[in-house]
Amino acid sequence: MIEVEGLTKRFGKKIAVDHLSFQVRPGVVTGFLGPNGAGKSTTMRMMLDLDIPTGGSVRIDGKHYRELEEPVKYIGALLDAKAMHGGRSAYNNLLCLAQSNRIPVSRVNEVLDTVGLTAVAKQKSKGFSLGMGQRLGIAAALLGDPEILMFDEPVNGLDPEGIHWIRNLMKTLAGQGRTIFVSSHLMSEMALTAEHLIVIGQGKLLANTSMADFIQQNSRSFVRLRSPQREQMLDALSEGGFTVVEADDGTLEIDGSSSEEIGELAARHNVVLHELSSQRASLEDAFMQMTAESVEYHAHSGGGTAPTGGPAAPGPQWGQHGDKGKGA
């Protein structure tokens, strides 16, 4: 188990991580989600004692990282795939790591086999593709057969086959009772792998919830309708006890109903409909809404169209720099 308490990191005037507190529990895949620059990597580096926190602490099974006897056997980490010496062979990169923690040399071949790099074990890691580099990084993380595994954006740059492989690997590892902590900036990716979710934005905790709860809370399903007899339809809906949201473009959105129900209601009241459809806001929209105020690098949306696509979601205030850094 990893316990993060009041973790803070300041780079000059800028606060990268701001009093972050959460726990990563064993036996599940915990997703660590946030937009670029939210402080995910800094948090992970502080967990591994690579960055020194300005305040707060991280405990791994109750101990500070520096107190761990042979840390590679407690916690394996993939921070970035390039954290290896390119002039050294894959085998030797893993061998020196194994020796520093007295891990049996036979383990090196085992993990190379697990990640499927046996054939290129003697080749310099400099020539590896992004996917192979990522696999080598994962081999290094698995070397000590640790109870806790930490992956920073493991699917970045992988092909579909590689992404599929990592997803299954994480599930298998969690199934063995290990603690898995994995960061991403893609909600859709997390929805497939993580059971628990920690969302941060501008270094602050935005959500700490189970994935099931997050989905239930945030993936709103509703019916959208357009009618020339708008007032009449609104009366009919309120009579029927439906909650109606009037969208900007004049359409009506009815939460928690089905299109059949609304269609029949319209027929009973003789209301003409021009549009009737079931809608579902995606998790991606929910995530973007949650982090909208804390997105560090806003893009200007040239065409003026809402980039979210979620009908009910007005979208984050893209391009409005006025609230930057104050909202969170």
Binding site: G27, E69, R102, D145, E147, Q176, G177
Partner: peptide, 13 residues
């Protein structure tokens, strides 16, 4: 929930 114990012994490096 989490009870994974590695077969590799941990000693003081």
């Amino acid at each position: 929930l989490g009870s994974y114990v590695s077969p590799i012994p941990v000693r003081r490096a």
